[in-house]
Design a binder for these strands. Sequence first.
RNA 1: GGCGACGUAGCCAAGUGGUAAGGCAGGGGUCUGCAAAACCCCUAUUCCCCGGUUCGAAUCCGGGCGUCGCCUCCA
Length: 477
Amino acid sequence: MIQIYNTLTHSKAPFVPAVPGRASIYVCGVTPYAEAHVGHARPAVIWDVIKRHLERRGYVVFHVQNFTDMDDKMVARASASGESVYALAERNMQRYLGELRALQVDLPQVMPRVTQSMEAILRYVEVLIDKGYAYATESGDVYFDVSKKPDYGKLSRRSLGAEESGHRSIVEAEGKRSHEDFSLWKAARPGEPVWPSPWGPGRPGWHIECSAMSDYHLGTLVDLHGGGVDLVFPHHENELAQTEAHAGHAIQTIFVHNGLVTIEDVKMSKSLGNGITVSSLLERFHPAVLRTYLLSAHYRSPLAFDDESLFGWQRALEKLWAVYRMAEDMDPPGTWPHASWIDDLLGFEEAFLAAMDDDFNTPKALAMVFDMVRTTRPIMDRGGLEGLVAGYLIAKNLRQADRLFQFLPRPGSAAADDLGQKVLQGLLDARAKARAEKAYDRADVIRKVLLDAGWRIEDTPAGPRLIAEPVRSKANS
RNA sequence: GGCGACGUAGCCAAGUGGUAAGGCAGGGGUCUGCAAAACCCCUAUUCCCCGGUUCGAAUCCGGGCGUCGCCUCCA
């Protein structure tokens, strides 16, 4: 049974979806006003793994993740650069999607955009007004009336009017009944894109789009609702209020929040300008390295970004890949010896999945992978019947873990073409000949030539092996 | 000030009552023409500090100290 921590209840509980065998997920996506940084890659990878694990456990997953392609930031950035809001959004979204693909993220089935969901948003606001939870002002703004929702604040555990006094000297908008009321619809302001509405031209407020799009694509039964912890308040608090007001009853959604990526002890954020972009990292590291690094801490923990750890995971994965390359072609022998280590290897996947069942404990699952390899590797190296069994099972288990982690080299990623293969083989043969003649100078020249061309030679008991050296991604491809 | 999270080896990081996973880095060794890779061994008597509960606590309780997040746009 999968256990998931719910921000709303502050505890882990068994995952029981609204519809047996199905899991619906809504994740609050990015506002594409600038290039994505590591802090945006983290939830994308985390949710990819959560989704893959749910699928592995037999659930049919429906995953929706939006783009907030219309809000204050979008408008401000677009007008600053002279670009249209649409073009700005399109450019950043396409780049982001390319990066996610490079990271082997299985994209959500639906990625709705605010600008393409206006009907659903307008209808949603109307329902809230009809039910008495929202009001329109004379100036054409619409606000959610927080006082109509007595349990408002239950997600972020704050009570109304509890803000620090003295720090707030906000000029309240005209017609707003309470300071805590939040905007559902903003009346048109000069120079901004506008849509017609029953309350006059304007555009949606920040939180309404997620409730409306979630309702449109998933209905009221959303099993998991995700985002960064920085969204707990006000975004998810307000979404929750809207959703329950709209539905007319409490909802049973599990709120799943990921910890933030920090850099130099401060949160990485677009507005602070301290973000390390995903593209800059993909130029320096293999996507699997970045992916694994992002999964090396539990998703709810903060992650202090540092280069050194990234290099560490690169090293760790290189070792893992080396083992996999040796083991991947081993065929299972017809007869198997009896040994406890074989039972352990056969039980690996279930133990691995059990670790994931516990609130998606990726660091623990990752540790189990390395532990499995470390303890079994010597048996494989000994060769013989046992070596064959060990190698076969190591490769099998790594492939099982890879279904979630996507950390093994992908087929064809560094494959040479036929002609290239012949040239490479010719060089290898020449080096072998040189070594046999003890002409080591000649042999080392060949090694150097290959290295310059991006291939590292490893002399193994089974003969020389070529490793694609540039551990670089072909990111934007 | 309010709310929340957290503090485990040089670094990263699991572990929520039974005697400290895993990764990186470091040290020693085996193998090798030299490398590389690989393998073996070693590296926290101790989990921010002080009390308490318990046969037993990193894990539970109380009190400190420190860090981060939210309270304003943010994954």
